[in-house]
Amino acid sequence: MKGFTGPIYSYLAAVLVSMVLVSLLLALFRIPIFETYTLLITGSLGSMTKLGDTLMVSVPLIIASASLVITFKAGLWNIGVEGQIIAGAVAASFIARELQMPTQILLPAMIGAGFLGGAFWGLLVGLLKIRGGVNEIFGGLGLDFVATGLVVYLVIGPWSRKGIASTSGTEPFHENAWFPTVEGFRLSPLAVSVSLLVVLMVIFVFNRTQFGLKLRSIGLNPNSSYRFGIPTSRYILTALVLGGAVAGLAGVTQVASIHHRLVPSISGGYGFLGILVVLLAGYRPFLVIPIAFFFSMIAIGSIQWQLRLGLHSSLGGVFQGTLVLSVVLISAMRLLRQRREKHVKTEE
């Protein structure tokens, strides 16, 4: 299972199929189809403000997807990224709340803390897998909810606002802990650079290092990699820790450049949405950027759908889901046909 692989025309065919399906749904609800699609473009790219917002939404999604590429390539179905994002966000929030320092020191400290926080949560998944015999799917899923419980506890407990114990979030951080933004926009160049650097790092690791090569071989065939002398469990542990650390950075950007405080829904669902991005990208890190950007266009564009056309906010998610389902199913059907043809040829 490699997510999507194959020639560009079958990719486009799948995109077309999903657009037809969504159009049918729109027609069923008597929603103007053409207007909906154009509003997606103008609503997400139509002005500098909107473009900036789209870029900002794409930052955590790109980082989360990059984290998933690391573990997916190693053959690990890490669905614990949500929890790792939260762990990173909690660690960065701790620094932002406790340390009174100038921005130049505070921001790197937050980034470092988020990196370590995510790495720790990834380490738990890894230890459970290699020492406890707990599959990373269930370990990761369980720790996602443990992290959610932790953040809710912090927000209404020890970190609650004075006098109020509500789930709406902590006090906003001091402005020293905010990522600087471009004058008049919500766009933060620092956050965007972090996301691009992370993708570059993942590309470098998998294309230029021994470590990346060995991880890929474990992903392809763990048994023969082990017999070939690769210490499989150590590599799996490292992949999960590294993936967690990267995911933690997504948490940092969430608290430092978007919410400016800790809220219960701090992960924003990017850990799960990232899985869709990575499947569409066929685990190729450089494809993560355009696909995550497109997903962010849908997320921001669907706000305009709500405002202008009164459409339900879930439509964007329906579109994303249809897209991924059709791409994954259609490319798998193409592979099936190829296998059949090969089979027929060998029999002749």
């Binding site: 299972m1 179905w77 949405l273 879930s314 998610g317 329906v318 889901g321 994954v328 592979l335």
Partner: peptide, 27 residues
């Protein structure tokens, strides 16, 4: 079908369907 016939990973398809069905239910 996707696991038996198409040899896709059950976990991957399951997650995609989770997100898709949840959004579809809201819509």
């Amino acid at each position: 079908f996707s696991s038996i016939r198409l040899r896709l990973n059950q976990i991957a398809v399951g997650i995609v369907l989770t997100l898709f069905a949840a959004k579809l239910s809201a819509f």
